[in-house]
C-alpha cells in the first residue's frame, strides 16, 4: 500500500516531463500486457498525485486517457510510430488508473486498471455522416463475413490451412451495404488442400498474422485488402500464406505490388 497515513502528496503538472515519463511507462505496460486487438497510445494525462513511499521512492498515482492505434498488439512497431485510429474509423478510447513507483530513477508499475470504449455513434456521425460504425464482434453478419472470408482464403492457400485467431474489428458499411471485418489468422500443421477435419489441425503459434481486412459485399462477394509490407518477423520454413487472395469482383480488387519482397508477404493481406 503506497499511502502512508499523515503524509501529503506532491502536486505535479500533468505535462511535467516526470509525469509524462511515468505515463509512458504505464502505456508500455498496457501494450506489453494486452492479449488481443490493437496497441494504445497516450492521449492525455488527466490527474497525477505523487506520494512519498517508505523507506524510499515515490508513487505516481495517475489517471490517463489513451487512444487505439492501428498497430496490432503483436506488431513489433514502437507505439510512437503507430498511426492513431482516426475518428472516421470509429476511434476507441482507453481510461486507466495507474500506480507507478519511481525508485532510483527507475519506474515500475505497481497497479493498473484500464477500460476501453468506442466513441459514441452520435459523435462519429456528427463528424462523418457516412462513416461505418463499429459492430459487435459476435454480430451475425460479422461472424458470417469472417467465415466466408476465411473459407475463401483457405481455398486459395497452396500451403498451410489457416485458423481464426481472433476477430479484431468489425464495421457495417452503409454504402455499398457490406460488412468490414479485420481478423487475425494462424497457420496450422495441416495442408489446406487436404483438410477433412479442421478441428484436428494444430495452430503454429509463431505464425499468427496481423489482422487482414476483408469486406463482404452482399452475400458472397469478398474484397480483400491489398498486400502491404510489414515489419520483418522471423518466419520458419514451412507453410506459406496465399499471396493472391480470391477476389470475386475484379473491379474491386486492390492492386498488388508488382514484385513485393517475399518477406513482406508472410502475413497475407494486411491493413
Amino acid at each position: 500500500a503506497p499511502h502512508i497515513s499523515g503524509l501529503v502528496y506532491r502536486e505535479l503538472d500533468c505535462d511535467d516531463p516526470e509525469t509524462e515519463q511515468a505515463a509512458l511507462v504505464a502505456v508500455d505496460y498496457i501494450n506489453n500486457h494486452v492479449l488481443q486487438g490493437y496497441k494504445h497510445t497516450l492521449n492525455q494525462i488527466d490527474k497525477v498525485k505523487v506520494w512519498p513511499r517508505r523507506p524510499m521512492g515515490e508513487v505516481f498515482e495517475l489517471e490517463i486517457d489513451t487512444l487505439e492505434t492501428k498497430c496490432y498488439f503483436l506488431d513489433p512497431t514502437p507505439v510512437a510510430n503507430c498511426t492513431v485510429r482516426p475518428l472516421t474509423e470509429h476511434a476507441v478510447e482507453g481510461d486507466c488508473d495507474f500506480q507507478v513507483l519511481k525508485q532510483d530513477g527507475q519506474f515500475t508499475v505497481l497497479f493498473a486498471k484500464c477500460g476501453s470504449s468506442p466513441d459514441s455513434a452520435e459523435d462519429v456521425l456528427k463528424v462523418c455522416p457516412q462513416c461505418p460504425l463499429l459492430a459487435p464482434l459476435n454480430d451475425t453478419k460479422v461472424v458470417h463475413a469472417v467465415e466466408v472470408a476465411l473459407t475463401a482464403f483457405n481455398t486459395q492457400s497452396n500451403g498451410s490451412y489457416f485458423q481464426l485467431v481472433e476477430v479484431s474489428r468489425a464495421q457495417h458499411v452503409p454504402l455499398p451495404p457490406s460488412t468490414y471485418v479485420e481478423f487475425a489468422v494462424t497457420a496450422t500443421d495441416c495442408v489446406a488442400a487436404e483438410v477433412t477435419d479442421p478441428a484436428k489441425c494444430n495452430p503454429l503459434a509463431e505464425k499468427v498474422s496481423r489482422p487482414a481486412w476483408v469486406a463482404l459485399l452482399g452475400r458472397r462477394k469478398v474484397k480483400w485488402s491489398s498486400l502491404q509490407p510489414v515489419p520483418p518477423q522471423p518466419q520458419p520454413d514451412g507453410a506459406e500464406m496465399p499471396t493472391t487472395p480470391s477476389v470475386a469482383d475484379p473491379a474491386a480488387s486492390p492492386s498488388l505490388p508488382a514484385d513485393p519482397p517475399a518477406a513482406a508477404l508472410v502475413v497475407g493481406p494486411v491493413v
Binding site: E11, L12, D13, C14, D15, D16, T19, E20, T41, L42, N43, Q44, I45, D46, K47, V48, L67, V84, L87, A91, E93, D119, S120, D123
Partner: peptide, 27 residues
C-alpha cells in the same frame, strides 16, 4: 505579492496543471 492597498494587483494567469494537453483528439 506585496502591493500598496491603493494600487490594484493585476491578476496573474490561472495555473491549471491538470488535465494535461491532448496529444491527438478528445472523444
Amino acid at each position: 505579492t506585496v502591493a500598496q492597498p491603493s494600487v490594484p494587483v493585476a491578476a496573474g494567469p490561472v495555473v491549471r496543471p491538470c488535465p494535461g494537453r491532448i496529444r491527438h483528439f478528445k472523444i
